[in-house]
Measured scan of single mutants.
Amino acid sequence: HNLTITQGKLFFHYNPKLCLSEIHKMEEVSGTKGRQERNDIALKTNGDQASCENELLKFSYIRTSFDKILLRWEPYWPPDFRDLLGFMLFYKEAPYQNVTEFDGQDACGSNSWTVVDIDPPLRSNDPKSQNHPGWLMRGLKPWTQYAIFVKTLVTFSDERRTYGAKSDIIYVQTDATNPSVPLDPISVSNSSSQIILKWKPPSDPNGNITHYLVFWERQAEDSELFELDYCLKGLKLPSRTWSPPFESEDSQKHNQSEYEDSAGECCSCPKTDSQILKELEESSFRKTFEDYLHNVVFVPRKTSSGTGAEDPRPSRKRRSLGDVGNVTVAVPTVAAFPNTSSTSVPTSPEEHRPFEKVVNKESLVISGLRHFTGYRIELQACNQDTPEERCSVAAYVSARTMPEAKADDIVGPVTHEIFENNVVHLMWQEPKEPNGLIVLYEVSYRRYGDEELHLCVSRKHFALERGCRLRGLSPGNYSVRIRATSLAGNGSWTEPTYFYVTDYLDVPSNIA
């Protein structure tokens, strides 16, 4: 807008934040220059609390790290170098490059900038070799853009010569660093050979998330399962459950009422301010606690030095998902009996873990797994792929695949051998790939016309006998059925096997 004052003059007093240069501009645009008398524009009460600059400061050096910015700028000295009290560095987070010096300023003089007072450097006698002032900004957020400017702080001049310097606002972004852990990993099994893994992005990506790394490792069953005799009275049979499938998407929606109208769909109840505040506090606490764990609990591995020492970490090797089922080394339970199943799973520490690289999504279907087997899954978020990966501390989750139908069934015939004193040795093959492992066998036998009897055969007993022995049988026709019990439950009964026990007292003698 054009402003013209045809008559009258300007009068400025007691404006401590208004620089004289701005008042002189007002004289020019209003056409009143030359009308004012000496005392109409006070030299001592206008701009006496402001830094009124008329020179431009330029930054000469900028260096960044993930949490620091090192700045240096060209030296500046007023005509009387004693008038320079120091520099004021202003900075704040700036997602967009549209910041002005006066953003967030209120009537009390406060604003949204963080201000650092910096002492002037030592003055050199040689004007050509003056030290460049600077400042190291610490405690910054990774991968965050900051708006920065600097200006001088000078003393009051009796001659009211307006001098000083100020830089333009520059924008500097800190470097990326390792992201925080992925949030809320959930693993479920939808079949006997697959596990579905879902997660949420890290709360602090500290860069642009480029991919996720998912490692999985087959877990050995508890050692007590191999040692305890679950045929003993009072000892509860062990059981394991597989990871249940995901709930429906509708039930997972946030901010939804727990109660549904019987007449149909209901609208979600909005969260109160107290609920939102509580969630923010919980989120802040979780982030602080995660940072504490990362800094205190997890110790970084030592990389190899120039002395030739090897990095103890196993090298990563990509495998196809079809090879995942046989990740671990199978060892027989008892070496003397080769027909026992290889369900003991000690994992070799030198073995390469299978892994998958996930790009542009937060889910993965891990296939080719062994049925009813526990897996430990390790999830890392990465925001750099080359020249070397920059990934987060791992988040861990466990899951067990679903049982395989008929995996616990005894394959092959049940054979028998009759000894003296009416002892019958029953023999059968253990299931080759049971659900988890076989903890015991149930032997059901009966003599024709009598009630059915049951015998429990422990895992250890089966390994020693290759089956079991029935003792003290009365003469007669017998039928026997056997079924295995694994961590997933009972298998199917075998087809009945028949044998006849004679009275050993009636056996004919070869003595003449």
Results as ranks from 00 to 15, higher is better:
residue 204 D to S: 15
residue 205 P to L: 13
residue 206 N to R: 02
residue 207 G to E: 02
residue 207 G to A: 05
residue 207 G to M: 08
residue 207 G to P: 03
residue 207 G to R: 02
residue 208 N to W: 12
residue 210 T to H: 13
residue 211 H to S: 04
residue 212 Y to P: 00
residue 213 L to S: 15
residue 214 V to K: 00
residue 214 V to E: 00
residue 215 F to I: 08
residue 216 W to H: 04
residue 216 W to E: 03
residue 216 W to T: 04
residue 216 W to M: 15
residue 217 E to P: 12
residue 217 E to Y: 15
residue 217 E to F: 11
residue 219 Q to W: 15
residue 220 A to P: 13
residue 220 A to C: 15
residue 221 E to V: 07
residue 222 D to I: 12
residue 222 D to Y: 11
residue 223 S to N: 12
residue 223 S to Y: 12
residue 224 E to G: 14
residue 224 E to L: 05
residue 226 F to Y: 09
residue 226 F to M: 09
residue 227 E to K: 08
residue 228 L to Y: 14
residue 228 L to C: 06
residue 229 D to W: 03
residue 229 D to E: 05
residue 229 D to S: 07
residue 230 Y to N: 11
residue 232 L to H: 11
residue 232 L to K: 05
residue 234 G to K: 06
residue 234 G to P: 08
residue 236 K to L: 10
residue 236 K to R: 06
residue 236 K to W: 08
residue 237 L to I: 07
residue 239 S to A: 14
residue 240 R to S: 14
residue 241 T to D: 05
residue 242 W to E: 09
residue 243 S to W: 08
residue 243 S to I: 08
residue 243 S to H: 13
residue 243 S to Q: 09
residue 244 P to C: 08
residue 245 P to V: 09
residue 247 E to S: 10
residue 247 E to P: 10
residue 247 E to L: 11
residue 249 E to R: 09
residue 251 S to L: 12
residue 252 Q to N: 03
residue 254 H to M: 10
residue 255 N to Y: 07
residue 255 N to V: 05
residue 256 Q to F: 07
residue 257 S to Q: 06
residue 257 S to C: 05
residue 259 Y to T: 13
residue 260 E to T: 12
residue 261 D to T: 07
residue 261 D to F: 09
residue 262 S to G: 07
residue 262 S to R: 13
residue 263 A to E: 11
residue 264 G to I: 12
residue 264 G to S: 08
residue 265 E to T: 13
residue 265 E to V: 08
residue 265 E to S: 06
residue 265 E to R: 14
residue 266 C to I: 14
residue 266 C to K: 10
residue 267 C to Q: 10
residue 269 C to Y: 07
residue 270 P to I: 07
residue 270 P to L: 04
residue 270 P to Y: 05
residue 270 P to S: 07
residue 270 P to W: 06
residue 271 K to F: 11
residue 271 K to L: 12
residue 271 K to V: 05
residue 272 T to E: 13
residue 274 S to H: 11
residue 274 S to E: 06
residue 275 Q to K: 08
residue 275 Q to H: 12
residue 276 I to Q: 15
residue 277 L to S: 02
residue 279 E to V: 04
residue 280 L to P: 15
residue 281 E to R: 10
residue 281 E to M: 09
residue 282 E to P: 13
residue 283 S to D: 15
residue 284 S to V: 14
residue 284 S to I: 00
residue 284 S to D: 13
residue 284 S to M: 15
residue 285 F to N: 04
residue 285 F to A: 14
residue 286 R to T: 09
residue 286 R to Q: 05
residue 286 R to V: 11
residue 287 K to C: 12
residue 288 T to E: 14
residue 289 F to A: 06
residue 290 E to T: 08
residue 293 L to S: 04
residue 294 H to V: 06
residue 294 H to A: 15
residue 295 N to R: 09
residue 295 N to A: 10
residue 297 V to D: 08
residue 297 V to K: 12
residue 297 V to I: 10
residue 300 P to V: 04
residue 301 R to Q: 15
residue 301 R to S: 09
residue 301 R to I: 15
residue 302 K to E: 13
residue 302 K to I: 08
residue 303 T to A: 08
residue 304 S to Q: 12
residue 304 S to P: 11
residue 304 S to N: 15
residue 305 S to M: 08
residue 305 S to T: 10
residue 306 G to M: 14
residue 309 A to E: 14
residue 310 E to Y: 15
residue 311 D to G: 13
residue 314 P to Q: 03
residue 315 S to R: 09
residue 317 K to T: 08
residue 318 R to K: 12
residue 318 R to M: 05
residue 318 R to A: 11
residue 318 R to N: 12
residue 318 R to I: 13
residue 319 R to I: 05
residue 319 R to D: 03
residue 319 R to A: 08
residue 321 L to G: 06
residue 322 G to S: 08
residue 322 G to T: 11
residue 323 D to H: 11
residue 324 V to G: 14
residue 325 G to P: 06
residue 325 G to W: 14
residue 325 G to Q: 15
residue 325 G to C: 15
residue 326 N to H: 12
residue 328 T to V: 15
residue 331 V to W: 14
residue 332 P to A: 06
residue 332 P to I: 11
residue 333 T to L: 05
residue 333 T to A: 15
residue 334 V to L: 13
residue 334 V to S: 08
residue 335 A to S: 07
residue 336 A to N: 12
residue 337 F to A: 02
residue 338 P to F: 11
residue 339 N to A: 09
residue 339 N to D: 11
residue 339 N to V: 12
residue 340 T to K: 13
residue 341 S to K: 06
residue 342 S to Q: 15
residue 343 T to S: 07
residue 343 T to A: 15
residue 344 S to I: 05
residue 344 S to T: 13
residue 344 S to A: 09
residue 347 T to E: 12
residue 347 T to V: 04
residue 348 S to P: 13
residue 352 H to N: 04
residue 353 R to M: 14
residue 354 P to A: 06
residue 355 F to W: 14
residue 356 E to C: 11
residue 356 E to S: 08
residue 356 E to M: 13
residue 358 V to L: 05
residue 359 V to P: 08
residue 359 V to H: 12
residue 360 N to F: 06
residue 361 K to E: 10
residue 361 K to W: 06
residue 361 K to S: 09
residue 361 K to G: 08
residue 363 S to G: 13
residue 363 S to P: 08
residue 365 V to I: 15
residue 366 I to T: 01
residue 366 I to M: 12
residue 366 I to Y: 02
residue 367 S to C: 13
residue 367 S to K: 03
residue 369 L to T: 05
residue 371 H to P: 08
residue 371 H to I: 12
residue 371 H to L: 11
residue 371 H to A: 09
residue 373 T to Q: 15
residue 373 T to C: 02
residue 373 T to M: 09
residue 374 G to E: 15
residue 375 Y to R: 01
residue 376 R to H: 14
residue 378 E to M: 04
residue 379 L to K: 00
residue 382 C to Q: 00
residue 383 N to H: 11
residue 384 Q to M: 06
residue 385 D to H: 12
residue 388 E to G: 14
residue 388 E to V: 09
residue 388 E to R: 08
residue 388 E to Q: 12
residue 389 E to M: 15
residue 389 E to P: 14
residue 391 C to M: 03
residue 391 C to P: 01
residue 392 S to L: 01
residue 392 S to Y: 01
residue 394 A to F: 09
residue 394 A to W: 13
residue 396 Y to G: 12
residue 396 Y to K: 07
residue 397 V to Q: 02
residue 397 V to N: 14
residue 400 R to Y: 05
residue 401 T to S: 06
residue 401 T to L: 03
residue 401 T to Y: 00
residue 401 T to K: 00
residue 401 T to V: 06
residue 402 M to I: 13
residue 402 M to G: 04
residue 403 P to E: 06
residue 405 A to E: 11
residue 405 A to P: 06
residue 406 K to G: 13
residue 406 K to T: 12
residue 406 K to R: 07
residue 408 D to T: 01
residue 412 G to T: 07
residue 412 G to E: 08
residue 415 T to V: 15
residue 416 H to S: 13
residue 416 H to E: 05
residue 417 E to M: 04
residue 417 E to C: 05
residue 418 I to E: 12
residue 418 I to S: 11
residue 418 I to Q: 08
residue 419 F to E: 00
residue 420 E to R: 13
residue 422 N to M: 06
residue 424 V to P: 01
residue 424 V to K: 01
residue 424 V to N: 00
residue 425 H to Q: 08
residue 427 M to A: 09
residue 427 M to H: 03
residue 429 Q to F: 11
residue 430 E to W: 03
residue 431 P to N: 04
residue 431 P to G: 03
residue 431 P to Y: 03
residue 432 K to M: 06
residue 433 E to R: 14
residue 433 E to L: 02
residue 435 N to P: 01
residue 435 N to L: 00
residue 437 L to N: 08
residue 438 I to P: 02
residue 440 L to H: 12
residue 441 Y to S: 01
residue 442 E to G: 07
residue 443 V to S: 00
residue 444 S to P: 00
residue 445 Y to Q: 02
residue 445 Y to S: 04
residue 445 Y to W: 13
residue 448 Y to G: 00
residue 449 G to K: 08
residue 449 G to T: 11
residue 450 D to Y: 14
residue 452 E to T: 04
residue 453 L to G: 07
residue 453 L to R: 03
residue 453 L to E: 03
residue 455 L to D: 05
residue 456 C to L: 02
residue 457 V to T: 09
residue 461 H to A: 10
residue 462 F to V: 06
residue 462 F to W: 14
residue 463 A to R: 10
residue 464 L to T: 10
residue 469 R to A: 04
residue 470 L to V: 13
residue 471 R to F: 14
residue 472 G to H: 08
residue 472 G to W: 09
residue 474 S to K: 09
residue 474 S to M: 06
residue 475 P to F: 05
residue 476 G to T: 00
residue 476 G to I: 00
residue 479 S to A: 09
residue 479 S to G: 03
residue 479 S to E: 13
residue 480 V to I: 14
residue 480 V to L: 07
residue 480 V to S: 02
residue 481 R to S: 05
residue 482 I to H: 01
residue 482 I to D: 00
residue 483 R to T: 01
residue 483 R to W: 00
residue 483 R to S: 03
residue 485 T to M: 07
residue 485 T to E: 14
residue 486 S to C: 01
residue 486 S to W: 00
residue 487 L to M: 11
residue 488 A to P: 02
residue 489 G to I: 10
residue 490 N to C: 10
residue 490 N to A: 04
residue 491 G to L: 01
residue 491 G to V: 01
residue 492 S to G: 14
residue 492 S to R: 02
residue 494 T to M: 08
residue 494 T to P: 01
residue 495 E to L: 03
residue 496 P to K: 15
residue 496 P to Q: 03
residue 497 T to H: 09
residue 498 Y to W: 05
residue 498 Y to T: 03
residue 498 Y to N: 06
residue 500 Y to C: 13
residue 500 Y to Q: 04
residue 500 Y to G: 07
residue 501 V to F: 09
residue 504 Y to C: 03
residue 505 L to N: 09
residue 505 L to H: 07
residue 506 D to A: 10
residue 508 P to L: 07
